[in-house]
Design a protein around this nucleic acid. Structure first.
Length: 244
DNA sequence: GTGATGATCTTCT
DNA sequence: GAAGATCATCACG
């Protein structure tokens, strides 16, 4: 299969084409109840949804979620040793112990950020790491945020790397801990939201998680099978499941 | 395309 | 003081 053929044409109008000052948020906002469940249940259902960020300047950036990982809270049995929350609440991870549907943005390796969505009820710290998006709206701004030339057509292989990786997508969408950690994703006025535009996902690939040293074989990574924007080794094996 | 390596700094022990 | 849910770059096949 030709991977380069899998990048889809952006579905949303560019800012300049909308005829208004700002673009409307696409689709329907996901309610808090969507997140108030175990992360391994929330994670596959997040696939195909839109992660939408309206930057302070009004520019709308959106990507379709194509890869996620579930991290289980310390109440789980056995506890998930790879999760930031597994030793209990700290100043860094306190968002995870709050209400579901909030953004947990943390710095990693001194120069990057990763974004999670908190799950379960207050006090239970399960979460889902967003690992990759398919760019949908605001590609020029994403390229600019990633230090690439904006306003020019990017080759497919470059375009698909805009948001292919947990830190790449944070960089592309302009997400940083100082501004976005703790934001409520379910609030209508929030600059950062997860929305459902009706994109249907029936089949999901399940594999072990990437880049961790504990619980390396737990099947908690979920991705759209064969999607060009999924990060990590293409050779990683897993099984396919069908969502009901 | 795959694998090795270094950058760089926050967080926690 | 050590480790880390990463990425860009380079060498090599």
């Amino acid at each position: 299969m030709e991977e380069s053929a899998q990048i889809e044409v952006p579905r949303l109008p560019k800012l300049s084409e909308s005829g208004r000052g700002v673009d409307p948020m696409p689709g329907r906002l996901l309610p808090r109840a969507f997140y108030e469940s175990a992360p391994e249940r929330v994670a596959p259902r997040l696939l195909g949804k839109l992660l939408v960020h309206r930057e302070s300047g009004g520019v709308l950036l959106a990507g379709r979620i194509v890869e996620v990982e579930a991290y289980l809270g310390p109440h789980n049995s056995p506890p998930d040793p790879a999760a930031h929350s597994h030793r209990g609440p700290t100043p860094r991870n306190m968002v995870l112990f709050g209400h579901a549907g909030h953004a947990y943005v943390y710095a990693i390796y001194g120069r990057y950020f990763c974004m999670n969505v908190s799950c379960e009820t207050k006090g239970q710290a399960g979460c889902v790491l967003i690992r990759a998006l398919e760019p949908v709206a605001g590609l020029d701004e994403m390229a600019r945020n990633r230090g690439l030339p904006a306003g020019v057509a990017l080759p497919d292989r470059v375009a698909r790397q805009l948001t292919s990786g947990p830190s790449r997508l944070c960089q592309a969408l302009g997400l940083v801990r100082a501004s976005h950690n703790g934001l409520d994703l379910t609030e209508a006025g929030s600059p950062l939201q997860v929305r459902d535009d009706g994109f249907a996902v029936s089949e999901v690939m399940v594999t072990a998680r990437i880049g961790i040293k504990e619980a390396v074989d737990w099947p908690l990574r979920f991705a759209l099978p064969g999607h060009a924007c999924v990060s990590g080794p293409k050779t990683l094996t897993g099984k396919r499941i069908f969502l009901s």
